[in-house]
Design a binder for these strands. Structure first.
Ligand SMILES: [Mn+2]
Ligand SMILES: [Mn+2]
Ligand SMILES: [Zn+2]
Ligand SMILES: [Zn+2]
Lengths: 139, 139
DNA sequence: GTCTATCTGCAAATGACTTGCATTCACTAA
DNA sequence: TTAGTGAATGCAAGTCATTTGCAGATAGAC
């Protein structure tokens, strides 16, 4: 069983520990935006000795490798997303909580402007923008 | 002595306490991006009984009133800025730490797109975008 | 002046995340 | 195969900005 994440770890000279393999398996089974705590709980169902610190440390590595991206969905914890599953951004209404998904390309013009005018390579792979949706706008 | 902030408080039916007046005075004397702790320290030089919780609670109120805007400059605490002093955004290089200031209008096209295509009124008054500056790009 | 909901002060709590350190173990080179 | 070794894990404790519960104080209304 070859998991894409395992190859990425090997390429970077990182060790393929059972813990990392279990975390990778858990993450790749998900399509949503997970927190460290959620992955911890998920893996613990099959391996009750999983450690939360290890999850945090592994997620940090995966993020550096570009396998997952972070975003702040406004609930006070970092949420991750498996990069290859879909590239997108979010709008979140501070009135009703509605979450609108945006295509990746929506931020392309901004990214291009920053690169052209400032030589700045913006790290905006997975952004959440807060505001008010049409329904909640009048409030 | 009439401080603009005081009027805004009155208009919202909020009380004009000595603590709030001192915090307003401290904030309006600043042109930079201050944290709650910094305002606390500043006010305490003249009124040693100032309380940190009061500062946090006051800043929350001022933010709701639109008198200050928040941003995350990447140092693990919320930083505020007196709205009327200048409207801008930031680029921060994760390589060398350089901070580039952006004119407010740089995000206008994005804001307009979100409003037109999604009916979404984005709350992006004071944004910090992380990435790599031209010098640090090759790394 | 009186009244009362709002504010403040204080101390304790929160909670996501980090860290120090001893132990274990995945890789590598012989 | 087998040591050898630096990297990774487990655990418990720490961090620290921010929040909160509550009792007492007070701004503003009448
Ligand atoms: Mn997402
Ligand atoms: Mn700013
Ligand atoms: Zn809404
Ligand atoms: Zn740089």
């Amino acid at each position: 069983m070859v998991i894409p994440g395992e190859q990425a770890l090997a390429e970077r000279g990182l060790r393929l520990t059972p813990q990392r393999m279990m975390i990778l398996e858990a993450i790749e089974a998900r399509d949503d935006h997970f927190s460290a705590e959620e992955i911890y709980a998920q893996v613990r169902q099959r391996y009750s000795h999983m450690n939360l610190s290890t999850v945090y440390r592994t997620l940090e590595i995966l993020e550096q490798a570009g396998l997952v991206t972070q975003t702040d969905l406004g609930d006070g914890r970092v949420r991750y997303h498996w990069t290859e599953k879909s590239r997108h951004h979010h709008l979140i209404c501070q009135g009703c909580g509605q979450v609108i998904d945006l295509e990746e390309c929506l931020l392309a013009p901004l990214k291009e402007t920053l690169r052209r005018d400032y030589g700045f390579s913006a790290n905006i792979a997975h952004v959440t923008i807060f505001g008010r949706c049409a329904k909640c706008h009048e409030v």
